[in-house]
Write a protein that binds this DNA or RNA. Sequence first.
DNA 1: CGCTTGAGGTAACGATGTTTCCTATGGTAA
DNA 2: TTACCATAGGAAACATCGTTACCTCAAGCG
Lengths: 211, 211
Amino acid sequence: MAVFDARQQRAEMRQDLRAALLSAAARIISEDGLGALTLRRLAERVNVSTKAVYTLFGGKEGLLEALYLDAFDGLEVFAPEITAIASPQERLLALARSYRTYALDWPDRYAVMFGDAATGFSPSAESRRHAWNTTRPMRHTLMECKPGMSAEEADFVMRAMWATMHGVVSLELRQLIGGREMADRLFDETLIAVLNHFAVPFPADLVKVPR
Amino acid sequence: MAVFDARQQRAEMRQDLRAALLSAAARIISEDGLGALTLRRLAERVNVSTKAVYTLFGGKEGLLEALYLDAFDGLEVFAPEITAIASPQERLLALARSYRTYALDWPDRYAVMFGDAATGFSPSAESRRHAWNTTRPMRHTLMECKPGMSAEEADFVMRAMWATMHGVVSLELRQLIGGREMADRLFDETLIAVLNHFAVPFPADLVKVPR
DNA sequence: CGCTTGAGGTAACGATGTTTCCTATGGTAA
DNA sequence: TTACCATAGGAAACATCGTTACCTCAAGCG
């Protein structure tokens, strides 16, 4: 009993340290960008040595993979406020817009999710599957918008939506799109273009686009 | 005269060294990825010291900016073979597909164009304008597809196309899309969805999409 | 011909990810 | 209980990175 408690306490401390490192890393990234995430700086902030990152994550690559998973999980944090919306169409639109808001609010977290190979990190197949799974609420809402839609079709349309959302957001973050209102229109219109193409009922007046 | 020749020869050697560094850098990136591009390795391959990169580019960031511009210029290399196509619609489709081919053939060059801030490099406003200018042939073809289209509208539709193309290609490169044939369909269908949405005449049977 | 200017090599500097060595603490078998 | 052992984590060294003083030296100038 005492032994079990001690073991459990050790496991908890391990988890606590892991969580502390992850949150500190996320904070560093939010504050000074992904390039500022250094093992020494991270360790100093949590008051441990850099070795802790190796025992817990196996190195910086493992740390980045954990941050990758956390960043995708963060996408779902918006869901609670949105699931209350009755209309599936409005809910789908809200989910899509929250995706963009998330990316614009935490561009460096988004960079972890879609950053290139310069970081030396490439997510594992399992992590990529996890990333895809975070689109489940959106796929579910999508099927509510078009009853009778097969799961395969929903998957395909979801990928199309994801691609267009990511495309607009990615170009916007790199300032390859004009201004904010241009990106607003672009996001809504490409979204509605894809939904219309796949015959997903979507009232056009839902998206207020000045033409 | 002899003075001018000598000066010209010096300038030429400068340009030669600059070109040699750029091509060697591109080769290193193609061979071992963007993370393998090191000033020491680059200098060794061209048989100069790392200082040459500083006098010619001002540092690694300047080198990356030059590679950024070159990578976008590489997009237009496909144009000559494509401009021969008579039908504007088929030409537009060919241009779009060549964009994807370019990205899939040189993923690391594409990473330089759209890589995140982890490299510590962010293109200047002028470089971004140059990047946008490489879409000119596509915009021109777009206007041929829909006579009477204003330049502003063409710009907007071009941005929508770019976003969807980049979105699909980006997810594909990160293996966030199923297989090759899935990405094939996704690319063509999102493209046609956008063009249809903006009322660009585009024969549906031009894109062979098994439904 | 003496002077200046600038490109480019050498070597050092600070910082990074990683590894090696060591310590100490908690669990385990006799 | 006691002696052994496994493991987490700290300290410091290592290889490598981008960068920068410092120097050399050849080309252009009066």
